[in-house]
Computed example of a mutant assay.
Amino acid sequence: MGTSGVITDAEVERLRAKLGQRVEVSEPPYVTEANRDAIRRWAAATGDRNPLYTDPEYAGAGPQGGIVAPPCLPYAFSRLSIGYRGGLPGVHSMFGGSHWTWYRPLPIGSRVRAETRFTDLIELNGRFAGRMFKQLSTTTFRTDTDPEPFAQVQGWGMRTERQTARKRNKYGDTRLAHYTAEDIAAIADEYTQERLTGAEPRYWDDVKVGDELPTVVRGPYTATIAVAFEQAWGGLFVRAHGAWFDYVRDHPAIGIPNAYGIPEPPEAVHWDSQLARIAGVPEAYDYGPERISWLSTLVTNWIGDHGFLEQLYVEIRGFNLIGDLSRGHGEVEEVSPVGDDGHGRVRLSVRIVNQRGDVTAKGWASVRLPVRAESTR
């Protein structure tokens, strides 16, 4: 296949031969410990203001007895956790979604190790780029002190031919955002209205089907926000100087020439609009795991410190472009009977909607809530 960026049957079969295998990378993880700095950076980059993640005194008085990690921080413990997408050299890779399962909170100071296996490769035909492949993997997270996992994520990404997407130009007529000073002031005010249940328990007894979660706002998206997320997550191919040129020498299909003829990593599409257009997108766009993290915050804001997010499934449905304003919404879909463990469980529908009314991410969450001792429901 060389560096043509075309999907060939021979390369697809070579990739299929790796199904079920454990995936290894030579680089060390960006984060290996859930220390205070890693937790603080993640909360700041994703807009999560819960003091459970940053205030030792507040967290110490809570149900966990100390600071714990935000649910999606484990993305930073493995570059593969967003969905292994090796193979198909030169073929563009886009994040498609995640299905998270959490078994218990991750306390501050925990050292974490991750294992990823390549699980599936599904051929599709889409409007964006014609022939494309959905590539899935599963990453399991454990601490050094416990062989049982504290979390697991199935992630997937889409492999598309840049030149085909560019020719189809599906997003060519997208109206880009622009804001007046009054618009920005209104958004700033909306941020001040974000509500957290916090230390006051939200009881299963009080939840009804159809209840709406308080909306969260994120953005408008900028290259600065992309950089903030990079600082928290670490990125896939972000390297500098000799290390970058060494990597390009070993992987010649990885570099995309920018306006100055300098090879850039594929993820430069998150801050360089010209490179995004090469991939068939009209402007630079966000990291999909950001939106999943925003939705996890939508949920944890609502359930409070005494609740627990057990599962979150999110499909990325469109691009969140530079300038786009995102809002997270959710509703109660189902209230299950109290389980043998004495907790109530609730299923939520969740989604991200931009200023154009487009749903750019959607899915569901399952949460565990405390039950009143005197409950007769």
Rank of each mutant, 00 (worst) to 15 (best):
T3G: 06
T3K: 07
T8Q: 06
A17H: 07
E24Q: 08
P29C: 07
Y30G: 05
Y30V: 09
R36K: 09
A44P: 14
T46A: 09
G47H: 05
R49G: 14
T54F: 02
A59W: 12
G60Y: 12
I67W: 04
P71N: 02
R85M: 11
G87W: 00
M94W: 00
E115D: 11
T116P: 14
F118D: 11
D120C: 01
D120W: 04
E123C: 07
G126E: 15
M132D: 00
S137F: 00
S137R: 00
T143M: 03
M158C: 06
T164I: 11
N169W: 09
A177M: 13
Y179S: 05
T180L: 02
L196V: 13
Y203V: 02
Y203H: 10
V217I: 12
V217K: 13
Y221G: 06
Y221W: 06
A226T: 11
A226I: 01
G234M: 13
L236P: 11
D250G: 13
A253D: 11
G261I: 13
G261T: 12
I262P: 07
P263N: 14
A268S: 15
W271C: 09
A276L: 12
I278Q: 10
A284D: 08
W294T: 14
L295M: 05
S296W: 04
L298I: 05
V299Q: 08
V299H: 02
G304K: 02
H306C: 04
D341V: 06
L348Q: 10
S349H: 08
V350I: 07
R351Q: 05
G363L: 10
S366W: 14
P370I: 12
R372K: 10
S375E: 00
